[in-house]
């Protein structure tokens, strides 16, 4: 069976202010989708809502993974169902070693029925797997012993997110600006890493401003978001167009969405806490 992630007519608000205004998106396992759009268009919000961030209120619409209603689940349920999000700004967890964090996470995700307190993946087995994956991603083994994202450089954080992606092997992964803050070499490495860990084994939603990350991971579909809606969908050529020519054409073609986008930008300035873009 091919897994399907389906978003229908999704409306989302924060404190009664609409951010997403009817998003429709269907992804199949093995497909790569690029999600592009100017600042404030709602790209990161969409990612966070799929992942189950409790700060957003879904006022209308649905998100389903195969037959499962994701909106009924908390974030951990969605992770166990096969959703992964690589964060634009990964969170530091002081005092928790990367290896311990990932061992627990991998156990829960691979054994969705695991109850709290039940055994984790055997240490030896897990260490070997982690070591192999880190070698594959050309990461220093020391990484596993460091605290989660604590004192990591921007590039290290993003690579740590890719390592998590590799270890958790989700059905669908959202990569939120995994290329931002990286230099050209680092983007190439990240991009190659994603390809290497097997994008064909998952569905990828790549949120990006640039097209570099798409080089090794050419999207079958490119979606353009503006004012909380997907206003246009095309192939890989759309991604290249937006990258080289910007959003002027889009802004002009969808004046209503553009107005909403400007409003949201202003709102986000007032409330920086949830400004994820």
């Amino acid at each position: 069976m091919t897994h399907v992630l389906k978003i229908e007519n999704l409306h989302v608000s924060v404190e009664d202010k609409p951010i997403l205004r009817g998003v429709n998106l269907t992804m199949r396992h093995g497909e790569t989708h690029a999600l592009m759009g100017p600042n404030g268009s709602g790209k990161s919000t969409l990612g966070l809502v799929i992942a189950g961030h409790p700060g957003y209120e879904v006022t209308q619409g649905s998100i389903t993974l195969d037959d499962a209603d994701l909106l009924e689940m908390e974030a951990d349920g969605r992770a166990r169902a096969g959703i992964f999000m690589a964060f634009q700004r990964p969170i530091t967890i002081p005092g928790v070693k990367m290896a311990d964090f990932l061992r627990h996470a991998a156990t829960n995700v691979r054994r969705p029925d695991r109850k709290e307190g039940e055994e984790l993946i055997p240490m030896r087995e897990f260490r070997k797997e982690l070591k192999d994956k880190m070698e594959q991603l050309r990461m220093d083994p020391e990484f596993a012993r460091r605290y989660v994202n604590d004192g990591f450089s921007g590039g290290e954080m993003k690579r740590a997110e890719i390592l998590q992606l590799a270890m958790l092997q989700p059905k669908f992964a959202i990569l939120d600006e995994t290329d931002s803050g990286l230099d050209a070499d680092a983007v190439r490495l990240a991009s190659a890493s994603i390809a290497e860990i097997g994008r064909e084994k998952m569905g990828l939603l790549i949120i990006t401003h640039h097209d570099k990350l798409l080089e090794h991971n050419p999207p079958q579909y490119t979606h353009v978001m503006l004012g909380g809606r997907i206003v246009e969908t095309g192939g890989v050529e759309l991604a290249h167009e937006l990258y080289s020519q910007g959003y002027e054409r889009i802004r002009a073609a969808y004046p209503e969405a553009e107005r909403a986008n400007q409003e949201m930008l202003n709102e986000e300035l007032a409330d920086a806490s949830l400004a994820s873009e």
């Binding site: 189950g52 951990d76 928790v96 627990h104 958790l168």
Partner: peptide, 22 residues
Amino acid sequence: FYAQSRGFTRKEAARMIVTGFF
């Protein structure tokens, strides 16, 4: 939320954060 998005239950996440704090 970050830990939950990696499959930790809320309680497991809290326990991990407290342990990490110490």
